[in-house]
Design a protein around this nucleic acid. Structure first.
Length: 772
DNA sequence: GCGGATCAC
DNA sequence: TATGGTGATCCGC
């Protein structure tokens, strides 16, 4: 939405240009260049933003250094050979040159500002900008004389020009005006290509032909509106775009459709003017002595050796003045995303809530276009402006807020855990979905679903396991309905009140805690455990390594079994596979200890925030317990191994698609999963072995996918619950009990974490579930 | 497929 | 006090 289209006229090769500095000559009521730069620098220096800009600049410099080293190794022989190859290609391009089209680039000058000035004439002779104190999207020409430009933070603009009027953006209005203009454009080319609210390409070739036959009086001027409009008329889009920038403001420029005119125009054109050549590319090329298109052409052989094929082909096109002559129809969308910047958020539960909210927004947007995708990506920017993205792809498409959140929260959790005990100090979070199926994929998917339903013994299975809508809502609803007030609203109120009323503030915090998924999990767990305790001392476990169900064994026995499985052939094989993981048993043990301690701390931290009574003493106990169990497990290896291999065959197995699967369940040939589900009973993930409090099969499958993607080990490391049998204990339903449960789980966790290299992130596995 | 980068608007 | 949001693409794993 923010326009940064005004490329700086004389970019410096240094950081200054990035700060929005420019070379405006002193205007009567403006500022000169020196003064502008000084003010901007003063406002910028020392900021975290600036720090990150410096860091990025260093990286670019390193890239350039590498490139120059590469260049130094090129022999004249290689260069000659490249020259021949490139020239052959250039010849082909030249032969394909098409000058028969007339392309117009239409660009509305300072569009948002112009609309605001139209609606409020008082603004006309004043410096104005549209945006906020944080960011401006555009400014009028008066403001530009003070160095106020698009993509500049408002607070800096105010220092440049204290009289500046910052008008909040009104996108609905701009859309409406834009629509009017586009209706006019459609008269000239019904297939015009809109690049944004204020920019479009038109192919008026056909229009010009028809126009020839028009009566004189009907031939009006091209476009007449109140706003200033730039035009560029040229034989292709690349040239037209550059043209429209030529005679600003409110100008028009035409390149006649002959080769000589094109090459003349190109000759001294700085490459930076071309769409697609940004700051970094400009700087890299400048290091090679390339500033104009002529120089770009002269260095074509060298470029073919230093850059990728895509890049040097592109460079060659530019230097020959070539560009696309037809306007591509809008293709299918490839991704959809939401992201938001905020003042620092470092509490994990707030981050989860935020993530959930973003997922809901994204789901709504997806719904509007009826889209579903397979890949979910989260984006995190910390307070130092460092950006990270993390993605996960599942086997079938997702689209609901819950499904997306199931994936996104795991990605987020991994990042939070990775930095623990330091919190992630975020200033931005985003969620993106991609991997939309094309038509063929859709057909294929359709078939699979039908096949799945048929294979699943039809009515009995489906109705038997899916809960009625009302039951289902019990699980799903809280996530959605608790959002009448958005997370940001809550944050706002929280901040507003923080000085005045602490108790109110607490209420708000609790509210946001409740919608935080991880805590829901915790809560549910205690319930689960209670019920299971009542029934039996022994439970059915599914070993997450060999996938065998372990019936009627104690927790200790089960732990032993898992230990053996982990120490068994499959794991060894896996660690061998990963050459970087040269870990001996000894090293593993060390990892275990450290890790378990961190986990303990973390659980204490999180539990504490939830007002569950748990003391640090419990945490110490956790470690001890864990160590004991770990030792017991490894000492008793022989015996347990035997126990493991003599186990009866299971009734639940995950069907995996590739060899890695074989490693995971190598004790047994692969076979389809038979997963028994009875009405009203929650689904238990066969990977992490955790009960999933959802009746939504899709959601459940997404969870299983995520588990498989992350790998068993990691999943166990991160999950806060693990089904355990509790010694009969009168204090069972208290917070203390909860802490004891975790104690044991940590033991297991740590054990697993030692061999987490199992996980192949890619390829994916699929889980087939049939119902009896 | 993932993650970092670059670019446009 | 304070430096954006959305979408696409490329490259090197």
């Amino acid at each position: 939405m923010y326009s940064t289209k005004e490329k700086n006229d004389n970019d410096k090769d240094d950081l200054l240009l990035r700060m929005g500095l420019n070379d405006n000559k002193a205007g009567m009521e403006g500022l000169d260049k020196e003064k502008i730069n000084k003010i901007i620098m003063e406002a910028t220096k020392g900021s975290k933003y600036y720090g990150n800009e410096l860091k990025k600049e260093k990286q670019v410099n390193q890239r350039i250094k590498n490139m120059m080293q590469q260049k130094a190794q090129i022999t004249s022989q290689q260069l000659r050979k490249a020259q021949l190859q490139v020239d052959r290609f250039a010849m082909e391009l030249e032969q394909g040159r098409d000058l028969n089209n007339t392309i117009v680039h239409v660009d509305m000058d300072a569009f948002y500002a112009a609309v605001e000035m139209r609606d409020n004439p008082e603004l006309k002779d004043k410096p104005i900008a549209v945006g906020s104190m944080s960011m401006l999207s555009t400014s009028n020409y008066i403001a530009r004389r003070f160095g106020v430009r698009a993509a500049m933070p408002g607070f800096i603009a105010k220092r440049l020009c204290p009289q500046l009027i910052i008008v909040p953006p009104n996108f609905d209005k701009y859309r409406a005006v834009s629509k009017e203009v586009k209706e006019i454009l459609a008269d000239y080319d019904p297939n015009f290509m809109a690049m944004s609210l204020d920019e479009a390409y038109l192919n008026i070739t056909k229009h010009l032909q028809e126009r020839q036959n028009w009566p004189e009086d009907k031939r009006k001027y091209f476009v007449k509106t109140e706003n200033a409009i730039e035009n560029g008329i040229a034989p292709n889009t690349m040239l037209a775009k550059v043209c429209s920038d030529k005679n600003k403001p409110n100008g028009q420029y035409q390149i006649l459709p002959n080769r000589q005119a094109v090459m003349g125009f190109i000759k001294d054109l700085p490459i930076r003017k071309v769409s697609g050549i940004g700051k970094v590319t400009e700087k890299m090329l400048k290091a090679l002595g390339i500033i104009t298109c002529t120089e770009l052409y002269q260095q074509r052989a060298l470029l073919s050796l230093l850059f990728s094929e895509t890049s040097w082909h592109y460079f060659l096109h530019i230097s020959l003045g070539l560009g696309s002559t037809h306007l591509a129809r809008d293709g299918e969308r490839k991704s959809m995303s939401v992201e938001r910047t905020f003042s620092e958020i470092s509490k994990a539960e707030e981050q989860y809530s935020l993530c959930q909210e973003l997922c809901s927004e994204l789901a709504q947007d997806l719904q509007k276009e009826k889209l579903k995708g397979r890949t979910v990506t989260i984006k995190l920017k910390n307070v130092n402006f460092e950006v990270k993205t993390r993605a996960s792809t599942v086997s079938s498409v997702v689209s609901t807020a819950e499904e997306i959140f199931t994936i996104a929260k795991e990605l987020l959790r991994t990042e939070i855990d990775a930095d623990f005990p330091r919190p992630l100090r975020l200033r931005l979070m985003g969620v993106r979905i991609s991997g939309f199926p094309n038509e063929e994929d859709k057909k294929h998917q359709q078939r699979s679903i039908i096949g799945f339903l048929q294979a699943g013994n039809q009515a009995l299975s489906v109705t038997g396991c899916m809960l009625e809508k009302t039951d289902k809502d019990q699980f799903v609803k809280p996530l959605e309905t608790s959002h009448k007030k958005s997370f940001f609203d809550k944050k706002r109120s929280e901040r507003k009140w923080s000085h005045q009323d602490t108790s109110k503030c607490e209420t708000i915090v609790k509210e946001s805690l409740q919608i935080s998924q991880p805590f829901q999990v915790l809560k549910k767990t205690s319930e689960n455990l209670e019920t299971s305790d009542n029934s039996d001392n022994f439970q059915i476990f599914t070993c997450p390594v060999c996938f065998r169900e372990q019936r009627s064994i104690s927790l200790e026995a089960f732990n032993k079994h898992v230990d053996v499985c982990l120490d068994g052939p499959s794991i060894r094989e896996n660690s061998k596979m990963n050459s970087s993981n040269a870990s001996s048993t000894e090293v593993n043990l060390k990892e275990i200890t450290n890790h378990s301690f961190l986990l303990c701390e973390k659980q204490y931290y999180e539990t504490h925030q939830k007002n569950v009574e748990i003391t640090s003493v419990d945490c110490v106990n956790l470690v001890e317990t864990r160590n004991n169990s770990s030792k017991a497990g490894s000492i008793d290896t022989e015996h347990s191994k035997e126990e493991c291999s003599s186990l009866p065959s299971k009734s639940c197995l995950v069907s995996l698609e590739n060899q890695d699967a074989e490693l995971l369940s190598r004790h047994e040939p692969l076979q389809p999963c038979v997963y028994q589900v009875t009405a009203g009973q929650a689904l238990v993930c066969p990977v992490c072995n955790l009960e999933q409090k959802t009746s939504d099969l899709m959601l459940f499958n997404v969870h299983v996918d995520v588990c498989l993607n992350k790998g068993i080990i990691q999943e166990l490391k991160n999950d806060k619950v693990y089904p355990l049998n509790q010694p009969k204990d009168s204090s069972r339903s208290t917070g203390l009990k909860q802490s004891t449960e975790r104690t044991k789980r940590v033991g297991l966790t740590a054990k697993y974490s030692a061999s987490k290299k199992i996980k192949p992130n890619n390829p994916r596995y699929t889980l087939d579930i049939f119902f009896k």
